[in-house]
Design a protein around this nucleic acid. Sequence first.
RNA 1: GGCCCCUUCGUCUAAGGGUUAGGACACCAGGUUUUCAUCCUGGCAAUAGGGGUUCGAAUCCCCUAGGGGUCGCCA
Length: 484
Amino acid sequence: MTTAVRVRFAPSPTGTLHIGNARTALFNWLYARSLGGKFILRIEDTDQVRSTPEATQAVLDSMRWLGIDWDEGPECGGPHAPYFQAQRLDLYRAQLENLAGQGLAYRCFCTDAELQERRKAVEDAGGTFLYDGRCRSLGEAEIKSKLGAGAAFSWRFRTEAKTLAWDDLVRGPISFDGALLGDFIIVRSDGFPTYNFAVVVDDGLMGITHVLRGEDHVSNTPRQLFLYQALGLPVPRFGHLSMILGENREKLSKRHGATGVMEFRENGYLPDALINHLALLGWAPEDGIEVIPREKLKKAFVSPHFHAAPAVFDYAKLDFLNGTAIRGLTPESAWEAFQPFLAKLDFIPAQIRSDRPRMEAMVELVRSHCHRLSDLGRELRVLFVDELTPPEEVRKEWLLTDGARALAKLASERLSALDAPTVAYGEIQQLQKDAKTLLNLGGKHFFKPLRVMLLGAEHGLELEKVLPFLTRAQVLRRLGRNLN
RNA sequence: GGCCCCUUCGUCUAAGGGUUAGGACACCAGGUUUUCAUCCUGGCAAUAGGGGUUCGAAUCCCCUAGGGGUCGCCA
């Protein structure tokens, strides 16, 4: 019998939720969901300077939008509350005393400036700076006098020369030489724990069994192993996920496109599509089917195999997945999903906008043409704006010809003969016959010019399906622009 | 620079000693649709290089090259 899986996502609230962190959250969540474990959200706000409540809220909002729910954490609490590190200071203090009592932690009175100076000296000489252990064995008297003088101090962990090793879930066996680590700070001079200390205390106390995190944490792991051993806390299994890169194989940044989770929402992506794509970065489904619904994903990480190489974020594939997801929506949920983007369109008259059935029908009309929800405007525009501007080469080929001019004339005459508010497709079919006999225009020489006149482009929505959404007056107006 | 990790089509990946090295996206071609999108079919395209081990290496070992991570009183 193995212990139930307990995994966590532990962001620091210093900005928006980055897509790379979202991937980490997702993998942990999927791992928990697949194995019936618990997913814990913990806020690592020990950086007094950079952490903000707004950022915490932004992280929670992003998580909720993605649909990644947590079993323990902010707003829902749990057996290991609180889930904000800034509220767990007494816990760290107790563990510090534990270490100090064992002689494994000591006060360091070296100032920032002093450390920088010594670092520079070593590096200028071509070496790699490690804390030199100056405060490692200060005498009681010396410590007392410094404390008496009100000197600031941090606490350092006393490392030793031994091998720190673990079997990484992603990378297999990894080991470090403890002698190369140097005594590192576990409690800052402001009394707050550093990341390496707090994370071990919390993961240990919260009973975390697996830690899936970014590759940038590999080099922290040996330090944390030192701490786990010294504290006698159970060591979780570690798995270090590859980084996510931009197209030029550099760290994903703004210049590659959106990087914040909420930006993807604003750009018209569905959370399910984003999740689907993120899941495919460093992981692959056993059945090879890559379009994966959320519910299936939640069962798929039973014995996941992760790819250790960095992955380039593929915006094109995301678009494909998103288009597929948009087409897979029910009409009702599609209607809901498009709302924010529909609201932004300024070319829809209020009267039509309030005609719900008509609006829903229009969304259905253009849905399969959208890769992103934000493509809605581009598609719908043609139903409302009469001043269409086809590209010059299209205009030249299909509009500026004698045949097109004659067709415009004939169409205007024929389609103004009836007064029904919209043009029926039957009228177009009749027009097609007349154009063939009178003007000898058939096939694409009939449809293409007509399409460009009415819809402003060579390609696009089906004429037959668009017609019910255009008034006869609109049709005639558009034809009229080509009469001379 | 030290330490650690990584390297299969353009991109995401499968294959963990024996396969014509498979799939997906993108791209190209054909079919369906009067166009486009959708959908279907087909095509292009990869084991970084060099040594070993082995009857047999994408798979194991070594070297080289390239890439990434990290070296904070940030997380």
